[in-house]
Nucleic acid binder design. Sequence first.
DNA 1: AAATAATACTTTGTTATACTATATACTATG
DNA 2: CATAGTATATAGTATAACAAAGTATTATTT
Lengths: 110, 110
Amino acid sequence: MDNLTEMLKGLLEGVVLNIVNRGETYGYKITRRLQDMGFSDVVDGTTYTILTRLEKRGFLDTQRRLSENGLMRKYYTLNQSGKKELTAFWTRWEYISKLLNNAKKEQKNG
Amino acid sequence: MDNLTEMLKGLLEGVVLNIVNRGETYGYKITRRLQDMGFSDVVDGTTYTILTRLEKRGFLDTQRRLSENGLMRKYYTLNQSGKKELTAFWTRWEYISKLLNNAKKEQKNG
DNA sequence: AAATAATACTTTGTTATACTATATACTATG
DNA sequence: CATAGTATATAGTATAACAAAGTATTATTT
């Protein structure tokens, strides 16, 4: 599926919050997870810009430490503020997706 | 509902296509329709930028003529290319909304 | 008759987000 | 020892919704 970029705006960020909410993780792994979920065109650069943004806004706590394989990693966890934001995100999603599905139902010829 | 702006990107345009698909209409009326549908914060400026964009891309045909109430109006209809785009839009929407709903299902504590 | 509201369109600039491209650096593998 | 894989970072670009202002006509209110 292509041409999803514009539709992903405001959504990808929430999906990342949701991934971090499932447990401590890091950028590289989040990108792989997004790709597995079906967001197949997402590249690392996108994930890192999102993570930086979310951290700046105070939704994520970070810890830089050596991983099992000897490489440095920046680990992210969702803090209280981030959990609030995640809830707000899903509320927005519910609202918007209902509106869109209503519109689709009213579709001509279908 | 507020803070919807970013989430609406790539969606509002499709909803406008869908509205025009229902029959010849014009900018001002489309804004009222969007507001009635629940996109309550959409203002005229937004609709007109979308319409101009869609027209430039060749999805809409236009006709400027006097309305019943004596005011000039720019009427829009969806052409063949626009109908194709509308179909593609709903395909994208189906794809993305499934991914998002899957993510939501996997949610921790919910 | 004058003021205000409603109808109708347009454009310029701002902001936010995903994406591109590139760079760095270390580890594992062939 | 070159290549692939793991891991992070960032500067620049494209695009879309939105804000704000303006123009002009018609309808309604005072």
